[in-house]
Simulated scan of single mutants.
Amino acid sequence: MFVANYLKTGLAGIDFTDCSIEKYMFHIRKTNELWNRLSKDEKEFTNACIEDLKQHLEESVLSKLPENYQSVLKQSVTSGEDDMVRSYLRIRIQKIEKYMFHIRKTNELWNRLSKDEKEFTNACIEDLKQHLEESVLSKLPENYQSVLKQSVTSGEDDMVPEPQLDTFVLCRSKEYLTGIQLEDGPVDDRSKLFEMEPGVLHFICYKSIKALVESGKIDLL
């Protein structure tokens, strides 16, 4: 309770009714006034929570990412920047939830997930299927009861949302790159190769630089 009271008075305007040592462990660990108020057992508990989280992130998430992402997130965890890590994981989970059917049937994406994320994806798919079948699909004609297709006559899974790779993104190259094939603009221009100077900002179709982003040569901003 002392942690909750301290945060309520020290960080005005934020509701900390669900405050706990586990939730604010990084903040507590790097704040001497809070750390010194913990008992010996509470300090051991806090350190154990931090180490468990680090291990979980490294085994289930960080090891699946490009090396440049790994170094940034590892540094974030080590320095106690838990808000950044939580934000990253929250966005990652949201994307999995949004595109779970597409991820499940696409080997390239499925193999990027950790064991826990695969279990989470499968659970989400089963939960959504059950919900749709019980609340909607069971009440429709048999030809329209598919979760993935509009009807049995559909040639593909036309009810499965997919990421929009033709979205334009702001990016910056880490090195001089040439031979980039543009995927947007007039048809005549798509045969032209594009160059990127290191450190220069570009607003470009994601599909054109997808492989370079995944290899760590280009950063999205």
Rank of each mutant, 00 (worst) to 15 (best):
L65W: 05
F26L: 09
L62F: 15
K64C: 11
K54E: 06
E51W: 11
D15K: 07
K23Y: 04
K54P: 03
R37P: 03
P66E: 13
N5E: 14
K43A: 09
Q55F: 13
I14Q: 03
E33C: 08
E67T: 09
V61F: 13
Y69A: 09
S63C: 12
T17Q: 14
E44L: 12
N32P: 01
L65A: 04
S39M: 08
E67A: 14
L65E: 06
G13F: 09
V61D: 00
R37A: 00
Y69H: 13
H27V: 12
Y24T: 06
K40Q: 09
I14N: 07
I50W: 04
K43V: 14
C19W: 05
N47G: 08
E42H: 04
P66M: 02
N5V: 01
K8S: 02
K23L: 15
N36M: 13
E33K: 09
I21D: 02
K43R: 15
N68P: 00
C49S: 11
S39R: 10
Y24K: 02
G10Y: 06
D52E: 15
Y24D: 03
L7G: 04
M25D: 10
R37D: 00
R29P: 01
D18V: 12
K54T: 11
E59K: 11
N36E: 15
T17M: 07
E58I: 06
K23V: 11
I21F: 01
T46E: 04
N32D: 12
A48W: 04
K8M: 05
E33F: 02
T46I: 08
N68F: 11
E44N: 14
D52T: 12
N47F: 02
K23C: 02
A12H: 03
H56D: 15
N68T: 14
L62G: 00
A48L: 13
L7D: 00
T46D: 03
F16K: 01
N68D: 10
K54L: 09
Y24C: 01
L11N: 05
K8H: 02
L57W: 07
L7P: 02
T17P: 05
T9W: 05
I28T: 06
E67Q: 10
W35F: 15
N47W: 07
L11V: 14
K54N: 15
L38T: 08
F2H: 10
F26N: 13
L53Q: 09
Y24I: 04
L65C: 06
G10S: 12
K30S: 13
K40W: 00
S39Y: 10
E44R: 11
L62W: 13
T17N: 13
K43Y: 03
S63Y: 01
A4W: 07
V3I: 15
E67C: 02
F45T: 01
E58F: 03
R37W: 01
E22D: 13
V61M: 04
N5C: 02
H56P: 00
E33Q: 12
Y6L: 03
A4P: 00
N5H: 10
K23G: 02
N32I: 03
H56C: 07
Q70F: 01
L62M: 12
S63Q: 08
L38I: 10
N47I: 04
I28F: 06
Y69S: 05
S63T: 11
Y6W: 11
C49Y: 10
I50M: 13
K23I: 14
L53T: 12
E33T: 14
L65M: 11
H27T: 13
Y69N: 11
C19R: 08
W35L: 15
W35I: 03
K8Y: 05
